[in-house]
C-alpha cells in the first residue's frame, strides 16, 4: 500500500502528531510505502529543531528527522502555513530578512501542491489532527 500522511496539529498540545508518527513508522516497518508526510496548519510546528522538551519526554521533531533519515521519507512543511507560524529554512529566513532559521533536518518547505499531489499519488491519504 502507498500511503500519504497529513498532520494538521502541532506536537505536544495534541497527541495527533505522535499518532501520525507511530502510524508512519509502523507502515514503513510493515514494508508499506509512504509517499509523503505533509504538515499543515499548526502541524508545521513538528518541523522545528529548536524545541527543547524535558529529557524524560519524547522529542517529536527529532523522531521525525530520524525516521526520514532511516527511510528516505519525504517530510514537507506547507510554506504558507510555515511562514505565518515562524517556521523557516535558511533560504526563507534570508529572503524575509529574518535573523534565524529553525527547520529540522529531513524536513523541507514547499507548497500546497505537494498535498494535492500526495492525494493523487497515494492509495490512501490518512489525516491526523482536527
Amino acid at each position: 500500500m502507498k500511503y500519504g500522511i497529513v498532520v494538521n496539529t502541532g506536537p505536544y498540545t495534541h497527541q495527533a502528531s505522535d499518532t501520525a508518527y507511530h502510524f508512519t513508522a509502523a507502515a514503513l516497518g510493515k514494508g508499506h510505502e509512504v509517499f509523503r508526510v505533509f504538515f499543515y496548519h499548526d502541524g508545521v510546528n513538528n518541523g522545528t529543531r529548536l524545541g527543547v522538551p524535558p529529557q524524560d519526554d519524547r522529542n517529536l521533531p527529532e523522531k521525525w528527522s530520524s525516521l526520514a533519515q532511516q527511510h528516505d521519507l519525504d517530510l514537507v512543511v506547507c510554506v504558507a502555513a510555515a511562514q505565518r507560524r515562524g517556521l523557516l529554512d535558511a533560504d526563507e529566513a534570508k529572503r524575509h530578512g529574518k535573523d534565524a532559521d529553525n527547520i529540522a533536518p529531513g524536513f523541507r518547505i514547499s507548497g500546497l501542491g505537494q498535498l494535492i499531489e500526495a492525494g493523487i499519488e497515494a492509495d490512501r491519504l490518512v489525516v491526523f489532527g482536527d
Binding site: H41, A80, A81, L112, G113, L115, I116, I120
Partner: peptide, 30 residues
C-alpha cells in the same frame, strides 16, 4: 476530492487554510 468544511470562518484558521488548499488544488484538474 472532497473538501469538508466544518468550522466557522473565524475563531480558528481552518476555514481560511482550507480555502487556500482548494485554490491551489484547482490547478491540478481533479
Amino acid at each position: 476530492f472532497l473538501y469538508l468544511n466544518r468550522k466557522a470562518p473565524y475563531g480558528t484558521v481552518y476555514a481560511l487554510e482550507s480555502l487556500e488548499v482548494v485554490l491551489i488544488g484547482a490547478a491540478f484538474d481533479q
